[in-house]
Every structure is written in C-alpha cells, then in structure tokens.
Design a protein around this nucleic acid. Sequence first.
DNA 1: TTGTAAGCGTTATCAA
DNA 2: TTGATAACGCTTACAA
Lengths: 324, 324
Amino acid sequence: MTTIKDIAAAAGVSVSTVSNVMNNKSNVGEETRRRVLDLCRELHYIPNSAGKSLKTGESKTILFNFSDFDRSFYLKIIEGINDYAGDNGYDLMICTTKSCEKYMHNGLTDGCIILDGRMENKTLQRAAMEQYPIVVLDRILSNPYIKCLVVNNYDPMTELVEGTVGRGYRKFAFIGGLEHTDDNKERFRAFIDVLTRRRIPFCRENYFSGNYRERSGYQAAKIFMSAPELPEIFVCANDNMAIGAMNALRERGYRIPDDVAVTGFDNCELAKTEGLTTVSVPNYERGYLAASSLIENIKGRENFELMKLTAVVEWRRSTGSRSL
Amino acid sequence: MTTIKDIAAAAGVSVSTVSNVMNNKSNVGEETRRRVLDLCRELHYIPNSAGKSLKTGESKTILFNFSDFDRSFYLKIIEGINDYAGDNGYDLMICTTKSCEKYMHNGLTDGCIILDGRMENKTLQRAAMEQYPIVVLDRILSNPYIKCLVVNNYDPMTELVEGTVGRGYRKFAFIGGLEHTDDNKERFRAFIDVLTRRRIPFCRENYFSGNYRERSGYQAAKIFMSAPELPEIFVCANDNMAIGAMNALRERGYRIPDDVAVTGFDNCELAKTEGLTTVSVPNYERGYLAASSLIENIKGRENFELMKLTAVVEWRRSTGSRSL
DNA sequence: TTGTAAGCGTTATCAA
DNA sequence: TTGATAACGCTTACAA
C-alpha cells in the first residue's frame, strides 16, 4: 500500500510536507501542494487510519453498536444516525458485538451510540468519559458522560390499555420481553397500573416471559391455548411477539379480533399489513437525534440530560370491541 | 486509558512481557503471567487496536459495506455474516459509505464484503490484493482477488414470467431498478427473453426505469394509470417497487389480481403478508457464505470462482389467472 | 516554505 | 524467562 513516505519520496519532499498538504495547512507552497496532490491521486494514497488515530487520538467517526437482527426497524435507526453524521462531517462505523470495546478508546472513534441490550451497564459506566461521550438508547443510566435517549413507553402503553378496556376487554394476558430491560418493565408497569386502577384482576399466570422474538410470542400463544380458558386479549411487549402470537392463534382457527384481540409495540413494517394495533416509535428520528446529541457532546457541548421521545398509538383491526 | 505501559509499570515488568502475556506466548513465567492478567482485569486494560494494527497489519476482523436502508433483508445478510465470522474467531465491522476505504488496507480489517452498489468497480479492482481479498455481492467482476457471489436472477425470473404467461397474461409492463446494476439487467433480460420466445409484443414504453425504492414503484404505477390502457401485469425488478405499485393501484380502486397482477423480486418481509408473488433470495445464507469465502481466502485458501446461489419463485395471490 | 525528530501503543527481534 | 529497542504510519513542535 502507498504510505505517506512513498508520496514524500515521489514528490521529493519530506513526510511532514505531505502531511501538511493532506491536512490543508497553510504553510506549504502552491506548487508543492499541487505536485503532492497529483501524486496522491496517481498513487491512490489513502491515509492510514490506524497511524493517524494513534497519533491524534481522534477520528471524526462515531460508533454504533447493536445486535438484534430480528428487529428490522434497526435499519431506520442506522439511517437516521448515518444521515446526521454524514451531514456533519462524521463517518459511521458499526459493530455488532461487545467487541466494540476494541474501537472505543483508541482514537478510532470519538464517541458511540449503544443499542445492544447485552452491553453491560458497568462497561458503559466505565467507558464514558469527557473525551469519549456515549449515547445509550432504551436504557436509563446515571453518568455525567452518558446521554440516555428513551422512548416514553409508559404513556402510550397506558393509552393503549385504557383504550382496550374502553372497548370492553377484561381478560388480559401479557406477553413480556426480556425481563431485565427497562423497556419491558415500563411497558408492563403501564399495563398493570391501568388494570389496577380499573380494578380488573390480573393473575401472574397470565404473564408470559418472552424474549422479544417472534418465536417466543408463538410459543406463548400455544401455551395459553392449552389452558382451559383463552384470554380475551393478548397485550405484547413488542410487535414480533404479537405477530408470533397471531400466527399461532390463526393456526388453531381463532379469528382476530373476533375471537381474541392482540396488540404489539414498535410499529414494525409488518404491523401495518397485519392490521396490528401497536405503538409507533419514531426510529429514524431516534437515530438522527442520537447522532446529533453525540456529535454535539464530542464537540464539547455538555448535553447529557435524559431525553424522552414520545411514541404514538396506532389503532388497527387486531383490536375490535367486545360487547360487555 | 490504560495502556500496555501502565500494566507493565504496575506489574513491575517490561512491556514486551505484557505483550507476550496478552498474546499467549509460551515464553513467560506462570507467576508473572497471573500477576499481569490480574492487573489487566483490575485496570480494565483493553489493547489499543490502532497500535496493534499498525504493527502487525492484521486484525482478525472483516469489513462489511452497504448503504441502502430501505432493504430490510440486509439485516439478514448481516446476521449471516456475523454468525459465520463470530463462530470462526473473526469480528465484524460495518460501514455505510465509501469511506470504508479508510478501513481497508491498514491492518484494521483483513478483507471485506461489498454490497453497496455505489462502490465503484475500479475502486474494488484496485483494492483487492493477495493480502486483502474481497467478496462482492450482486456484481460480477473479473479479478484474481475478488470473489463474486451472485444470485441467479435469470432462471427464477424466467420461471416467473413463463408462469404468468401460462396463466394467461399477455400485456406486460416492467418496472426496472437502477439501470446499471447487473441485477436489473439480468432480471430484465430474462423477462424480455421469455416474451420474445413466446412472441408476445413488448414496446419500450412499457418499461419504467425506477430505483428499487417503494416510491418509484408507486410513481411508475401512477404514470401507467394515466395511459389509455392499463397493462394486465406489472413485473417489478424488486419487492419494494412492487409494493409501491400495488399501493398506487389500490388507491385508484383496482383490485389485485382481478384487475391487474403484480410480481416482485426479493421476498421481503412484507411480500408474504401482501400476498405478493415474488422470488425468494436466501439472504442469511448469502451472508454466511460470503463471510465463509472471505475468511477462507484470508487464510490463504484460493477460492475466487464465481458463485451463484439459486433463488426460488414464490407464487402468491398477487398473480391470478387470466381467461384468454 | 520546508525538513528533522519525537512519540502515539503495539509487536518482533535479539540479547541478557 | 525477561528486557531493550526498533519499527509500523502518522502528526506536530521546532529548527532551518
């Protein structure tokens, strides 16, 4: 590969001069600059990021970390991040495992956005620092260098459950996501708070602990169908599980919403065509805002306040109304 | 951040000893090794990838490049890549722009998989070398260090169009994707070959040149609807455009397939629920195979033959049959 | 306007 | 079994 030395040799100048040209410094003669630039093009010189990072400790690059490939709206988040970063002179680098620590504090990236639920809180607490701000999605952490960006789950879930109560549903089942995630906790809390307030009984047996994947919603519905009495409505912690549940129910001949209603959360692509009542999360905007906060913080703006985005209930045909 | 020097100082040994410990060399005493390892954990030492790459020129990491966020099956490809890489001791790094050149030849990654259609052929021709093999998806290039992995578009498209002819359709429109892509060319060629063979007339006015996005399919259908006579069937170069077209048609009150039929290509998530007849591409497998070929080649296996995956027609209700 | 030289965090070579 | 030291490609004082 062509290095700065090759260019220097070819142009008959020193490496520092080449470096100065590459970084648009003013202290270099017009004729020299042109000769160097020409050579760079000719020899296809691309500065070595490793060398550069090692020396400068910065990169004009942000890191995004995720890992759940079933959630297709992740691409929307990435698009939002990519757009903001691109428009503001930053590159985006993405990694899918916790090996993203490899890219965190070595000048390869200047900050990161974390979505992967498997990334541990204490790792993040340790990693965040003045020279390396972090934005965390869907999780609340208290740290002076971590900005948390969460969607308000509680209010729309409250509205959703209130709405179904208003439509006459009384026998509820809840298909939950990963137990320890804030998302799941908040969605369930909203659910149970409405039921409590409305004095609708809910026994723990009607809670199924899933993992956000379609398969676990499918399994949940199967299990509920083996009990003597089917709930009137399945409230699911996300769309994937709701769709899994709908498939299982339909396979057994139940009609939705005539025999049983289902709700989701996320408003994934399928939700619309499936007619699934759900909560719509502004994903592109989330990504865009995450990138914007991060890059502002990299530049020294100190904006680490918790930020909540509001999601919105989308009523569709998977919830009908039930004569009391 | 903790560096190798910090560990060396804390352990009272030299940096080379710490390095030897980190790389599992045998030339280090058991007691020393343990002390160093303990310190690493305690001080949360993570080796600096930039320094490492600079020195060794390798990284056990592969790079994936893509950029179209509308194609949600890309996540499936990523999942396939991620799985193979992970199982074989490689990390995955993803980037979304052609700035991925920054990560190509500097020891940060050992090879890459290219999906982004905007990445130019000549860039790839130049970038591929013995020490940096490349896998390219959906494109055919002739280069000793580039492995091309394409899906056979021609055969399934032939089967699809033959099938619709068999079902009685005669007046065809074609909604194409980006003109210069091999995918689009091949899909169209299969289409036109069948029509020619069957002596079914097709005039160039029934070709719409789109860009693979839903919006362009929508626009295409709008335009066709403004002509005096509607085609009997829209053959689209991908699902997104097919879905856009279906939306436009339904908005005007046309029923599918009673009034007009539509076919797609990709078998995206929506295709199933929309009942869209399409071609199913094995995306997870593509990613998995791409990663597998790449990593084998990084290890020195020389496997650069063109590889074709076969896709399969999925007949659904968006194509009915037409009484002749 | 240009060049010299030190140093970023690693690993590899060689000597102790 | 350990430690000095040079080198990877780059930037940045500072000197010329």
